[in-house]
Design a protein around this nucleic acid. Sequence first.
DNA 1: GGCAAACGTGAACGCTGTTGACTTTTTTGA
DNA 2: TCAAAAAAGTCAACAGCGTTCACGTTTGCC
Lengths: 240, 240
Amino acid sequence: MRKSPTEPAPRRRPDPATRGPGGGRRHFLNRELLLDTAIAVIEKDGHEALTFRRLGAELDVAPTAVYRHFADKDELLRALGERLIEHALDGYEPAPEWRRTVREVAVAARRAYLAHPRVGALALARVTSSDVSFRLTDICLGAFRSLGLDAADAARYYLALVDMTLGSASLESAFAALDPATRAADDAVWGAEFLTASAERFPSLAASAPYMTGAFRDDHFEFTLGLLLDAIELRAAGHA
Amino acid sequence: MRKSPTEPAPRRRPDPATRGPGGGRRHFLNRELLLDTAIAVIEKDGHEALTFRRLGAELDVAPTAVYRHFADKDELLRALGERLIEHALDGYEPAPEWRRTVREVAVAARRAYLAHPRVGALALARVTSSDVSFRLTDICLGAFRSLGLDAADAARYYLALVDMTLGSASLESAFAALDPATRAADDAVWGAEFLTASAERFPSLAASAPYMTGAFRDDHFEFTLGLLLDAIELRAAGHA
DNA sequence: GGCAAACGTGAACGCTGTTGACTTTTTTGA
DNA sequence: TCAAAAAAGTCAACAGCGTTCACGTTTGCC
């Protein structure tokens, strides 16, 4: 954060004799370029590779040039989330069936928010200024309204949907950053250890152990989402 | 990570003349003390305050002493999650009613995993070695089994429950680390802007805007959880 | 053409997790 | 009982990150 101008940081001035050239206005950097570069970096090397230094290297600029376009990293990440949503869902038209609409939006949004563990939280922290996001919210609320729910209930179910979608993305994104050895240990151990070790003490666990994998496949999220939509449909029917 | 011993780091040796005293075995540090200190730090100042230096300061030891007890920060965080679960749920006995059981476990687990955004992901990455966690998994699976579900279905619903619970914790934990001004901006803007600005373009959004807050209250998670449990109950009935 | 604004640069800061050699204390085994 | 090994804590330092601030260059405006 930039400090109050009344309190200059006690920092040694660079020796003018050794200071190199300034940058000047080159007029090729802009937010969109930075964001698209950030997306490419994440897709190639994961979200932990997204540093200012990396962005600078990719675009042949000083890392600090990024601060001319984004106040700080959180602002970069917020804008990143919005851009990913636009890429995925700009121009989206609702499907004829409400469930399909909500599913398509949620699955795509989750995929977008997988980019970085903080993106979901940042999306929730500030009302977006993006027309695409407004429109998607409107579409989902409209889908719930088509079930006969009033505005307050539609909002409540929408927030449940958001919590689940962004939560799943946040969790999986954090998981993806763990080192592969840490992650890989899981499946093998569930399979081996509990078929034999603790069947008497934990019988339900022993019986289900072979099936306790796959929490992060896309179709697993869609399964959970389907449960949520079942419940919403059930409750809406109860309102009628 | 400690490197292979075949490849010493090219680092300048400290001048023996200036090197002070080593630490010796004082036998008062242990994992439990470190974990409980970590918990206290997080509760007092939030998860970003949890650094090795902070732990060292709290216990009057060098920060690097922590490495004698935990291989790295991830291992500390994993152990932290397990300890929090033990605090919350050790000795838990299932309620007479399956929904209440699952709800009590999920709400308490979510509360534990709010400690740090990475704890949920770390919990998923490795099969726990904690009896408490095994037992809780067994209890939840047992609750689903009591609905007449088979072992594979019980596992699938359990994973949905885990995804939702840990996801919600991960998201909210990340949200909690944002600065208060970023967080506070949200509610005011939902209230003001959309009652007036875009009602024609986004009618459902405009109607629901006054209700679009409160995503992070505990009762909101319980509402979403209730939806999930409704759906599980409905699908279990379809199996009968 | 000169000045102000915009934007990029470079040096440096503060902070974090981490490494590896050293020191001190405790434990072990003969 | 003593010496050696093990355990555990210390210290100095590293690499890397986000960030700040002063400087330098380019562009746009009057």
